[in-house]
Amino acid sequence: MNGPVVVGVGASSSSLAAVEAAAWEAERRGVGLRLAHAVAWPSDPVAPGVPPWDPDGAGLRASAGGALAEAERHARRVSPQLPITSEVLVGEPGTVLESQSRAASLTVVGGRRQGRFGGLPFGSVAGRLTAQGRCPVLVVRGRTGRSGPVVLASDGASPAARAAAEFAFAEAAQRTAELVVLHTRAHGRDGAALVAELRRTYPDVVVRHRRIRGRNRPVVIGASAGAQLAVVGVPTHTGLTDTLTGSLGRALLHHAPCTVAVVPSGAPKH
């Protein structure tokens, strides 16, 4: 897909880290970067011709403009020649970004650990973005280096698992990174067959399997500690919280100390 990379812009350090990650993703995909800054609906009516996000004509305009200007500066540090557009949009961040993601190749958000995204309750932004299966969502937090393996949570060969596996293999190939496949006994023959199929498509990707026994959280944290990316899948047209591909996917999204890609089963091919 040739749509832009869309990134949610705020004032937090996690937002600026997301902008830098989004700029790098846009550059390597050969597409533009779109900066989206969301503001709340005004509580009082505004005069005709006045932007609804700036009824006073100064305060919010300066704040939004400052946030977008700072975001563009950070993006330019990563890719000076990158085509960048920006827009102030009225509405709840998850709703605004979901709308913007419809024509995007990737949507990027800053995220905090412990089940929160950009300071919002778990699932409110990433869940809204993945629910309609528009495009993969990159949740940037923790380690943001470009070395280390790509980690995939695999639960078999469901449509969500296939979409996540295809995305993970493509990312590993493009990043020249090793792919670590985490799976449990439930992974089964179908999951092994899917990995074998994709190894034929990406013969240069080195794949390591890691079977998870016992408690997922400490093992997942250890497996992803030095990773540059973790990948999980989610069925389309559902919420995020309870429908990630198995307990491994949930453990990665909650606890992985690195950037996490959430891939809807209905997302366009990577």
Rank of each mutant, 00 (worst) to 15 (best):
E171F: 01
V232Y: 05
V78A: 06
P136W: 04
V125A: 09
V96E: 02
V7T: 05
T107F: 10
I84T: 03
I212W: 02
A157Y: 03
G32I: 02
S13A: 15
P257F: 07
A177Y: 04
R162G: 03
W24A: 15
L244I: 10
F122A: 15
V50T: 10
C258E: 03
L248A: 10
V109N: 09
G156M: 00
G214E: 11
V219I: 12
H254K: 09
V207Q: 09
A104S: 11
S105C: 14
T176Y: 11
V19M: 06
P203M: 10
H254F: 14
A163Q: 02
R34I: 00
R200D: 14
G156Y: 07
V219Q: 11
A47E: 11
L129Y: 07
R200K: 14
L198R: 01
A177N: 00
A38L: 03
S86T: 07
R162L: 09
A230C: 04
V232E: 08
G145L: 11
G30L: 11
P42W: 00
A131Q: 12
G115Y: 07
N216D: 15
L82T: 09
P45N: 10
A40T: 02
S224I: 00
V150F: 07
R250F: 12
G145E: 14
R134Q: 11
T176H: 15
A256F: 08
A62L: 14
A251V: 03
T236C: 13
E166Q: 12
R211G: 11
D204W: 12
E178P: 09
G10D: 14
G110M: 08
V108M: 05
V151W: 10
G91T: 10
V46N: 00
A21E: 15
Q174F: 07
W24F: 12
A157K: 05
L120F: 14
A18F: 01
